[in-house]
Design a protein around this nucleic acid. Structure first.
Ligand code: ZN
Ligand code: ZN
Ligand code: ZN
Ligand code: ZN
Lengths: 172, 172
DNA sequence: ACACAAATGTTATATTATAACAATTATAAA
DNA sequence: TTTATAATTGTTATAATATAACATTTGTGT
């Protein structure tokens, strides 16, 4: 287990992400710590490339594209190429550490990776500032499963992405 | 107004789409008729290319990609090129006659285009047969809007796509 | 040290989508 | 009907996203 002290105390409240001025360094540190723990517990190897890509994804709360990541990574690692990024993304997705935003061909860190099973997030995405936050709405999930079930359909995975204006971007 | 006789009588019940053996010619005819009516009512021009692309999209209940459409269209119209397809898709999306399935970069016909406002569908997509059906769940939509609203977020559009097994593909 | 598997490097290519400008066609005013 | 105008389509090129295939290197356990 990686050294971590009083993680609970540093962890921020849910919804803090809409605040454009929160201390984002904590988001990054927490995400990398959780990732290290999860991978260690699973015997999965969070190599330096993978860790760095995860860190780059967490550089903001905005979904980021594969080639944007590549552009940055290339400055530190001259031989980085598309497969470098896509392999890291594949690993991080498998480990449930990031999610793919289908409507943007982009990737975002999962703020609450599940140790047991990987989940697919539900997102609110601001069309103005670009920030996205993950919902934890089991009710919606249940209702969707029920609707499907009424037609005899069994859901295995789902994509829910809502675009609109976050509270900070509604100048009113 | 295009000639249409007793459309109500030919129209199939909701959910018929999961039946792999329904009379799909009726789906196509209805879709093209409705499209013609809607466009006429709006002064929008359903040109032969646009109409043909819509027909090709309706050739099944499976989402179809732009380049698959192009492949077919090229056989009838030698000078068809990517812009030919993408312009038609853009028009059909604007008119609310088709939807884009984000998780597949593919397009599917809307079985119930709204004369007034265009909506974004919610889909159940079978991973086995590939068929997709559109849900009409206002409850889910309302719940999602409420969840967003609790965070001060205002939804403008949304993507809901659930993958799984349709009743016909659950061999059990 | 050795064998093996996993990860990364490298080159090429596939897939999806748009930009830019020219030519044609539909619409309606003169 | 002619003519002006806007909408649509043709055409060529390129951007953006993603994967295939195979070589090389690195990590892990024996
Ligand atoms: Zn943050
Ligand atoms: Zn915002
Ligand atoms: Zn049908
Ligand atoms: Zn099926």
């Amino acid at each position: 287990m990686v050294q971590r002290k009083a993680k609970q105390k540093t962890k921020q409240k849910g919804g803090a992400e809409w605040s454009h001025n929160h201390d984002h360094r904590l988001c990054i540190v927490d995400a990398l710590d959780r990732a290290a723990d999860l991978c260690a517990g699973r015997g999965a190897r969070l190599t330096s490339i993978r860790r760095r890509v995860l860190e780059l994804i967490w550089s903001s709360h905005r979904p980021i594209g594969a080639y944007s990541l590549l552009e940055v990574l290339k400055q530190e690692r001259a031989n980085a190429a598309p497969p470098t990024i896509y392999r890291a993304l594949e690993f991080l997705l498998e480990q449930g550490l990031i999610h793919r935003i289908e409507s943007q061909n982009a990737y975002i860190g999962c703020p609450n990776p599940d140790p047991d099973q990987q989940h697919k997030g539900m997102f609110l995405i601001c069309t103005d500032c670009g920030n996205a936050v993950e919902l934890e709405e089991t009710k919606i999930d249940r209702l969707l499963r029920n609707s499907a079930s009424n037609q005899g359909f069994v859901i295995e995975s789902r994509t829910v992405e809502a675009a609109g204006l976050c509270p900070e971007c509604q100048v009113s």
